[in-house]
């Protein structure tokens, strides 16, 4: 693994190795001393073109727990503000000797560009690009699902046979795209649930099922339901007019107490955060014992540690004889 750009690039073996590594690393995180010396002397740059305090903190924590030096770089980017170009930013990071660049960008494909342009040598980790991919989110979701739904000895295991529904704004969601790719690779059966306006043209070619009716999907018996954030602005004409009103949305696609009760007793509820309580998820569901939303955050650190470990700890190919 040289970069982590898309969950779709991961083979089953790659994905299971990341989850297993995360599990071993998670075990060290219960200790009083959580810091490991593994990436001492390595520099990880968090290059965030889009505000996301929670994702940045998660990566920052992961890198620091592995003793890497962390530089946070909040950038503006070429498109919106006509700030410094991605290329110049990349050349700057190269000159600073970055070993890994964790990039969050509003433009789909920006991490791909960074990795393929030759502007810098660092390993590139996609921390969310536009409406494309957010692979570490999918990995932490898979990790969380495996912990809860796959036997007491999950090491080496995938998610074969699990039924997962992903509900909400699939059209604009990099979380949905990443999860469809990764959960499919790991053997789970995924159903996307959304109003037709919030599904992309072409979704029929994805390795999943698609439904417009949450209640029907819930009735099929799920192991997990993942609620996606829906922005209220999407209902307005300026926001695209994707649904008539927040109320109608939550009535048809929100996870409320009644729908929560329709889940089998072992099923878990996920949400990538930040939540819109009362829109896609009710407080009852978010705070219920089924909800593993807070745990997702903790698992995010372990998964990101695993990714940084696997990308940075070994020798670069040319150094390894």
């Amino acid at each position: 693994m040289e970069h982590l750009l898309s969950a779709g690039d991961l083979s089953r073996t790659d994905a299971v190795r990341i989850l297993d590594t995360a599990a071993e690393l998670a075990a060290t995180q219960g200790r009083e001393i959580k810091k490991l010396p593994t990436l001492r002397g390595r520099t990880v740059v968090n290059l965030f073109f889009e505000d996301s305090t929670r994702t940045r903190i998660s990566f920052e924590t992961a890198a620091k727990r592995l003793s890497a030096d962390v530089i946070n770089f909040a950038a503006k980017g070429s498109s919106v503000s006509k700030g410094e170009s991605l290329k110049d930013t990349a050349l700057t990071l190269q000159a600073m000797g970055a070993d890994a660049v964790v990039i969050r960008h509003h433009a789909s494909g920006a991490p791909h560009l960074l990795a393929s342009s030759g502007w810098l040598q660092a390993a590139v980790v996609n921390a969310g690009d536009g409406t494309h991919q957010h692979p570490t989110q999918a990995l932490l979701d898979a990790y969380t699902l495996r912990r809860h739904l796959v036997g007491p000895q999950p090491l080496g295991q995938d998610l074969a046979g699990l039924r997962v529904a992903i509900v909400g704004d699939v059209l604009h969601s990099r979380v949905a795209r990443s999860n469809v790719d990764l959960l499919h690779t790991l053997g789970a059966r995924v159903t996307l649930v959304a109003p037709p306006t919030l599904l992309p043209v072409g979704v029929e070619t994805w390795p999943c099922e698609v439904s417009y009716h949450l209640d029907e999907v819930l009735a099929q018996g799920l192991d997990a339901v993942m609620m996606l954030r829906v922005q209220r602005e999407r209902m307005s004409s300026a926001g695209g007019g994707f649904f008539p009103s927040p109320l109608e949305y939550s009535r048809r696609y929100g996870l409320d107490a009644r729908r929560l009760a329709a889940l089998p007793s072992h099923a878990v509820v996920l949400h990538p955060g930040p939540m819109n309580r009362g829109l896609e998820i009710s407080a009852t569901a978010a705070d219920s014992s089924r909800s593993v939303i807070v745990e997702q955050v903790a698992n995010g650190v372990a998964v990101r540690m695993a990714v940084l470990y696997l990308l940075l700890a070994g020798g670069r190919r040319e150094d390894v004889s």
């Binding site: 789909s108 536009g130 409406t131 494309h132 991919q133 795209r177 992309p200 072409g202 979704v203 994805w206």
Partner: peptide
């Protein structure tokens, strides 16, 4: 819109030009 709206735009997350 960024590219043709279809299978590829859906996968790579670019806004579609139908």
């Amino acid at each position: 819109a960024q590219m043709h709206e279809g299978v590829v735009s859906a996968q790579i997350g670019l806004a579609g030009w139908p």
